[in-house]
Amino acid sequence: MRNIIDAIFGPVVDILNKIIEWLGQVRLIAAHGFDLGIYLGYVAWLPPPWLSLVKTVALGALLVAVVWAVRALWSLYLTLKSSVKWW
């Protein structure tokens, strides 16, 4: 029975593994930094301390959004798995 449940949720586990790989790529982008001038041209005119602050806030917001999405998917996965075990 356990193998059947694991086979049913195999695609979900694969999606979660792909999310983990994507988070590794996001980590590399965060380590290299990104140019906000490409997306928000007026931000490039700010002095360096303010530009650093805007970049940090943007990366922090991205990190929070990614963690929230992963947490929501993991919660959905656990809920579905527990409902199948109960059934």
Rank of each mutant, 00 (worst) to 15 (best):
M1W: 04
R2M: 04
I5F: 09
I5K: 10
F9V: 00
F9P: 01
G10Y: 11
V12W: 07
V13Q: 13
V13D: 15
V13C: 10
V13Y: 07
L16I: 10
L16R: 00
L16F: 09
N17C: 09
K18F: 12
I19R: 02
I20E: 14
I20Y: 02
I20G: 00
W22A: 15
W22D: 13
L23M: 15
L23A: 05
Q25K: 05
R27N: 12
L28W: 04
I29G: 05
A30G: 11
A30C: 09
A30T: 14
A30N: 05
A31G: 04
A31S: 08
G33V: 04
G33H: 08
F34W: 07
D35Y: 06
L36H: 06
I38D: 06
I38Y: 14
I38M: 10
Y39F: 13
L40C: 03
L40T: 11
G41V: 01
Y42L: 08
A44T: 09
L46F: 14
L46P: 12
P47C: 01
P47H: 10
P48G: 02
P49M: 03
L53H: 06
L53G: 06
V54I: 15
K55Y: 01
K55E: 15
T56G: 05
V57G: 01
V57D: 04
A58G: 00
A58N: 03
A61S: 12
A61E: 13
L63D: 12
L63H: 03
L63C: 01
A65R: 15
A65I: 13
V66L: 15
W74G: 06
W74V: 08
S75L: 09
L76Q: 05
Y77E: 09
L78M: 03
L78V: 10
L78E: 11
T79E: 15
K81T: 07
S83F: 04
S83G: 09
S83M: 12
V84K: 14
K85Y: 15
W86V: 01
W86D: 14
